[in-house]
């Protein structure tokens, strides 16, 4: 009552670009939202739909998948997989009536600390305005 909803965000970050970008943001003392729970993975292509669903099931109100820009993947084409898989999963969420905006794929390089901060802030704000997933799914 009167307590503002603070979303839980699970952010999968690739080891080579986004995680380094997030690290640099921290080193530069830029502030990113504490709502974001980072999970470091070796490649955004490693993120299977099951992992995203488990994050939602475990209480995440939003899931961010972040990796290297196309062309910069440490494994050449790992992010080619994620850029096909995640939009498809967004479609599936929409199909079963979960707001697809709760899942976002984006690219953040190691040199883009400000972008990391901007992306995490705007995603957190978006999910905050959508409200808790548990409420949406319980309806």
């Amino acid at each position: 009552m009167g307590v503002e909803f603070e979303p839980k965000i699970v952010a999968f970050m690739c080891n080579w670009c986004t995680y380094a970008g997030a690290d640099n943001a921290g080193v530069a003392r830029m502030e990113s939202p504490s709502n974001v729970l980072p999970i470091r993975v070796m490649c955004s292509g490693r993120i299977s739909p099951e992992m995203v669903m488990r994050a939602f099931r475990a209480g995440a109100d939003g899931v961010l998948v972040m990796g290297c820009h196309i062309g910069d993947c440490h494994y050449s084409t790992g992010n080619h997989r994620s850029v096909k898989r995640m939009p498809l999963l967004r479609n599936l969420l929409a199909t079963v009536g979960v707001n697809p905006e709760r899942l976002e794929l984006t690219w953040v390089s190691a040199a883009e600390a400000p972008r990391f901060v901007q992306v995490t802030h705007s995603f957190t704000d978006k999910i905050r305005s959508l409200g808790p997933l548990s409420q949406e799914v319980a309806e």
């Binding site: 739909p49 099951e50 669903m53 488990r54 939602f56 099931r57 898989r85 498809l88 999963l89 599936l92 199909t95 079963v96 979960v98």
Partner: peptide, 9 residues
């Protein structure tokens, strides 16, 4: 959503 959505994907 896990079971059915995993299969759907």
């Amino acid at each position: 959503p896990a079971f059915h959505l995993i299969r759907a994907m």
